[in-house]
Design a binder for these strands. Structure first.
Lengths: 339, 339
DNA sequence: TTGTAGGCGTTATCAG
DNA sequence: CTGATAACGCCTACAA
């Protein structure tokens, strides 16, 4: 099956390519008759413009790139959902790349997308991104760029975030209000800004309620997995049998904590209360149901794309664009694990 | 920041575009001196070929399209993982679209990808795909095409599947071997081939073990959700209090079943045994841990891309390509819900 | 060893 | 109202 081109339509109709092009694009200066002839033939042949040629001419591909640490991840897949939904609504397609939490991968992928000349890039940093060269590359090339969730505060670009510190503060305060007085924290890795912020929120909540901060009660995840949750739960209860509350960096790990406590017959929430973060789907289906912080993942995706689109459009119109930061609200969801 | 082109390099070096192009592509007929000069300048300027132009020339984009029903879904996100990993390894990028189980969406998305002129398409059908026109379009345009999991048997294209019937048979047989004699089935929607096959496997297992088939014990999901699982569990136990085993179309729904039984104090596996399908992550973390059928989702993704690549390459070399079907193995995973 | 010329398919400008 | 022409950036016969 041959590809249909403007040229072919022009030839069969015995007119010029220019006219065909204009007719198809509804230019005002084409006679109704020619226009109709062209349109009829085009639809009957199933003509669609060759996007490669269009890309070349217009210098845009109506495609954006998305780099995230992991696809198989409740939070990120929900964000993807939001991004591709909003993108499609606006006539954009999304190329998805996964850094697997590896900085070298992330760098390579930025390069791939830049070479591909996508119209913009949305990204959430991998956990070991402490090096910003590749990101600066994006900025330097003036490619529209938005970061969400795991951002780098130093980069001047639009961002979609939650107030991790405040959210964590609220989570820990919730534990305190439920009567906890010795609260451990299983925190995320050292680098990511949001792990730091959640840790700070934890600290602040203790402070506010006059609970002394004890660094021995803070446990640091390396890989943020279910297994780590189990292991830390064991360690916590062995090292500090009187701990009565745990604030965990994310639900996946918190579910690991609950799993260990279930196995070890440690009663949640009676002996220890547990609160997670992110409101993963599984948190509602385990026993006891996990209290957590709801993070509007789908909306973060939508907001990210909207910001990106603004920047893309500004660039097209040669307008200057001032990066903006959108902060979305979170809320504590009380379930059985903190009753 | 201006885009670097061959032309610019040629001009600054005072040579022709052709020579620059050849130098960069390591043609043998360029003097080492010129080659070096070109290479040096190119790297120092950070030249990368304009992919729009390359696409137009070579008529390929090194990009494939992927359409799946849902992104926020353990099985599908794992498949995505496999596909983009394998694609990246081979220098391909992946555009992901989500049909949300809607046929009109799916059709539109096929059109989008076709217009985009991706080098190939991988797809898993939405549940109401009983109409094949858009798929036939892909075939007719000779765009390399692979279906996985939810396939249409009638379409002549490569496929990556499991033997749903056999897998279901094994799951139900597992229940029987554990002592169940009145086994209900919560099946998937009417259309999808794999829902049909799993149902047939259920029937066959009963037959083989001389258990009479009773259509009243079969419940049909519409949306395949957690909530449906809860609702059907209630209905089953009310309508057939003596049911002692349930085979459920997929883990998400099975988890709903367990949730209801937990709430209703119906003991699993003592009173009723439950087995799911797909081995979702959450199945290991709920109480009781759910027995299920392991489905190699990541590998299905890898296999799908490999098949697609074969076809893409065959097409490039103008070789004919015979569609193949790859069938991957499944296995019953025994956990607490069928002990 | 280097360069000229043409074309991939579309769009924009400008002249008829 | 229509069309010739050039250009987007790259690649590749073919010529010099």
């Amino acid at each position: 099956m041959r590809e249909i081109t403007l040229k072919q339509i022009a030839e069969t109709l015995g007119i010029s390519i220019t006219t065909v092009s204009k007719a198809l694009k509804n230019y005002p200066d084409v006679s109704p008759k020619t226009k109709k002839a062209v349109l009829d033939l085009a639809t009957s042949l199933g003509y669609t413009p060759n996007s490669f040629a269009v890309n070349l001419r217009t210098k845009e591909s109506r495609t954006i790139g998305l780099i995230i640490p992991e696809v198989v991840h409740h939070f990120f897949s929900s964000v993807i959902d939001g991004i591709i939904a909003e993108a499609e609504k606006n006539g954009y397609l999304v190329i998805i790349l996964q850094s697997n939490e590896s900085l070298p991968m992330e760098k390579k992928q930025v390069e791939l997308l830049l070479n591909k000349r996508v119209d913009g890039i949305i990204m959430s940093l991998s956990n070991d991104s402490n090096d910003d060269d590749h990101i600066k590359d994006i900025i330097r090339k003036e490619v529209p760029f938005v970061m969400f969730d795991k951002i780098s505060k130093l980069i001047p670009c639009s961002k979609v975030i939650i107030d991790d510190q405040k959210a964590a503060f609220n989570a820990v305060q919730h534990l305190i209000q439920k009567g906890c007085s010795k609260i451990a924290h299983i925190r995320g890795p050292v680098n990511p800004q949001n792990a730091i912020d959640r840790f700070l929120g934890y600290k602040k909540a203790l402070e506010k309620h006059n609970i002394p901060f004890d660094s021995k009660l803070v446990y640091t995840c390396k890989n943020v997995t279910f297994e780590e949750g189990k292991a830390f739960a064991k360690q916590i209860i062995e090292e500090h049998p009187d701990v009565d509350g745990i604030f965990v960096i994310t639900d996946l790990v918190a579910v690991g904590v609950l799993a260990y406590f279930n196995d070890a017959n440690i009663e949640v929430p009676k002996q220890v209360k547990v609160i997670g973060f992110s409101n993963w789907f599984m948190s509602q289906v385990i026993t006891p149901k996990l209290s957590t912080v709801d993070q509007p993942s789908f909306d973060m995706g939508v907001a990210s794309f909207k910001l990106l689109l603004e920047e893309i459009n500004a660039k097209k119109d040669l307008l200057s664009f001032k990066p903006r930061t959108v902060e979305l609200d979170t809320s504590v969801i009380e379930r059985e694990s903190t009753l």
